[in-house]
Computed example of a mutant assay.
Amino acid sequence: MNYHVNQQGFYGEFGGAFIPEMLYPNVEELRQQYLDIIKTESFQEDYLKLLKDYVGRPTPLYFAKNLSKQYKTKIYLKREDLCHTGAHKINNTIGQILLAKRLGKNRIIAETGAGQHGVATATVCALMGLQCIVYMGEIDIQRQAPNVARMKMLGAEVRPATSGSKTLKDATNEAIRDWINNPIDTFYIIGSVVGPHPYPDMVARFQSIISEEIKKQLVEKEGTENPDYVIACVGGGSNAAGAFYHFLEDPNVNLIAVEAAGKGIDSGESAATSVLGKTGIIHGSKTLLMQTEDGQITEPYSISAGLDYPGVGPLHAHLFQSGRAVFMSATDDEAMLAGLNLCKQEGIIPAIESSHALAVLNQKQFKSDDIVVINLSGRGDKDLNTYINYFNL
């Protein structure tokens, strides 16, 4: 089975570009040109140079000695938390800003939930001298204040989304409205493997540097390219798409995607789309989506601002439906405790998103000689207030 996107922009039955007529020229321009542009020598040269000298890649693949001892298996952490801006998001925004410049766009818009993608977009706009407008849910603005301040310091305008749940979904709606109204000069940098084709494929390609490095680094450390397991958290799913990308066609590598169960899968306050979702269309893409009987989107919930998206990207919907990836979930409590455990065991404070991936270690038994790679998608600086309140620190 093929796990990469087909010519029509579908992964199995999921994907496509279900968009208003007004957006058709923008999306079509991108679809026709993105592969030709990113495959050119000059693009690759610019992209890889910035990843090395500006982002700080390759990020380490760190053997977590204490964690490995605790769980009696071999655990490696892919340290995306050490990227410039504190998360994997910068891998994608560097790629998309180079694409925007080559398409002659001078106004950049983005959506953000936890603020990491907003910060990464504001960062590359400052670097390239382009106007930046970031849409962010009003609730997320309150709970991610440090990231809002960072975006403003980097010269971005942060516009609150005040409709619906006032979180990521609504910020995305606002960004799409803006794009419809400003089709000529505006480029929309989407932060995850969601949205209309070609975005899910494009974002996955820019994030695939993660799995490309994992393969090289494992040869050096273990004498093999392939781990037994790759584990990553999934909201929209860009860090997981990047960590899985070069292993998709190899059935010997087990892929585990971890969603946010919130206060429990059946609590009514959850974001575990694979369990709770059914096929629907959101933000221009056919995918698995949490919705009511009559197709209204159900509000997701997670203690982590980056995982409360009501759907998953179409690649992940396909990986789930085909059985290629195992989807698990972690509650707020399980994630917070797993995050604190990493702090105490390894001296690394993870983003709460990444803590969901770590929670799998308490849910699944691994063999002593298994090589388990966990993608540590971001660092916990932005979440300190949530940690403080949760643990009464």
Rank of each mutant, 00 (worst) to 15 (best):
A271V: 00
E353C: 01
N6S: 06
D294V: 04
L130C: 13
Q363I: 03
H117R: 08
F366Y: 04
K52N: 12
H197D: 07
L77A: 13
M153V: 09
N91Q: 05
D228N: 14
G380E: 01
H88R: 06
L61Q: 15
I371W: 03
K263E: 08
I184G: 15
L23T: 08
I282R: 00
S68A: 06
L48N: 09
L288M: 09
S329L: 02
N92T: 11
T123D: 12
H84L: 09
Q7A: 10
Y54E: 07
G155K: 13
D53E: 15
I190N: 05
S302Q: 00
I282N: 00
D140W: 04
V258E: 06
I303R: 07
K52Y: 15
D250Q: 15
D228R: 11
Y24P: 02
Q116L: 02
T186H: 14
L248C: 06
A110G: 13
G236D: 02
E157P: 14
Q217I: 02
S377D: 05
T287E: 01
N91A: 04
A122Y: 14
T273R: 01
Q296C: 04
R159V: 07
V326I: 05
V312W: 00
I97G: 07
H4G: 09
K78I: 12
I231G: 09
F244Y: 10
L289T: 05
T40G: 03
I38Y: 03
A325G: 10
N2F: 12
L315E: 15
N2G: 06
S165E: 03
V373Y: 05
P300E: 00
N239L: 05
A357P: 07
A243K: 09
F43M: 05
V119Y: 07
V234F: 00
A145M: 06
I231F: 01
D381P: 14
K216R: 07
L248A: 10
N66T: 01
L50I: 08
N252Q: 08
L384A: 13
F366M: 12
A145R: 13
S238P: 11
R150N: 10
E346M: 07
G311I: 03
E45V: 03
K49L: 15
N239K: 08
I303K: 08
T186A: 13
L99R: 15
S368M: 03
L384F: 12
Q7I: 11
N91P: 13
I19R: 08
S68N: 03
G235A: 00
A271D: 01
G262V: 01
G339E: 06
S192W: 00
N26P: 02
D140G: 09
I348H: 08
K49S: 15
S42R: 08
K152L: 14
L393D: 04
V203G: 03
I297T: 02
L154F: 13
H84Y: 07
M336E: 00
L103K: 06
A110Q: 06
A145S: 14
T162V: 14
D46E: 14
P251N: 03
A359K: 00
I352F: 00
G15R: 14
G164I: 06
Y390A: 10
L30H: 09
G236V: 00
L288W: 03
N252V: 13
A305E: 01
A114D: 04
R177G: 13
Y47H: 15
D201L: 05
